[in-house]
């Protein structure tokens, strides 16, 4: 019980702040609650399939397979898989981090996981269609094309700038978070 309270402490404090706001600044308090409710519903809508697929991947896909597909020696194929996984996803970016954790735990190369995060954040296909209808196809296609390179660069540079100790810490985290 104590453990649960300490884990949810920060969340509880924030909820309390929002409730207090309802009394001192009712307008902002209500608006904030309305946004939180909408976003919560959106999150709860995407969470079940994503986490079920995550659980199934964890149980059924052996580490060796994942290493072959997305590991150190996976080459362009690993990059492509990472890019497609991120682009075909749905949901806000913070949902992607637990999946990234699983990919790391199963032995994916760090830069490939970063490509996955990059694709999830900027080249999600449903979002691209929406972007094209709001800002035009030229805008969307230009941004998309440039972002393919930007995502690869960010992933590559981040991995290069991290030393061996940083990297082994990241993999250790992944193991302790989803064991």
């Amino acid at each position: 019980m104590k453990k649960i309270i300490s884990r949810y402490k920060f969340a509880l404090i924030l909820v309390t702040i929002n409730i207090i706001l309802l009394f001192i600044l009712p307008e902002i308090g209500y608006r904030s609650l309305a946004h939180t409710r909408n976003n919560t519903l959106e999150m709860l809508y995407v969470v079940p399939p994503i986490f079920i697929i995550l659980g199934l991947l964890d149980v059924w896909v052996p580490r060796e397979t994942m290493i072959k597909l997305m590991g150190e020696k996976s080459g362009p194929l690993g990059k492509l898989i990472a890019f497609l996984m991120g682009s075909l996803a749905a949901g806000p970016l913070y949902v992607a981090f637990p999946i990234a954790g699983l990919l790391l735990k199963k032995g994916s190369k760090l830069s490939n996981v970063l490509i996955f995060i990059g694709a999830w954040s900027t080249t999600k296909i449903p979002l691209l269609l929406f972007e094209a209808s709001a800002l035009g196809w030229t805008f969307m296609l230009t941004r998309f094309t440039v972002n393919i390179f930007v995502i690869l660069l960010i992933a590559g540079i981040t991995e290069k700038l991290l030393n061996t100790a940083d990297k082994s810490e990241i993999y250790k985290r992944a193991h302790s978070l989803s064991s």
Partner: peptide, 18 residues
């Protein structure tokens, strides 16, 4: 995996709302 990250998710949702 979901429950592990749930406290942070709740935090994010409230912060975004505010």
């Amino acid at each position: 995996a979901f429950e592990n990250i749930l406290p942070q998710f709740i935090g994010i949702l409230v912060i975004i709302g505010l």
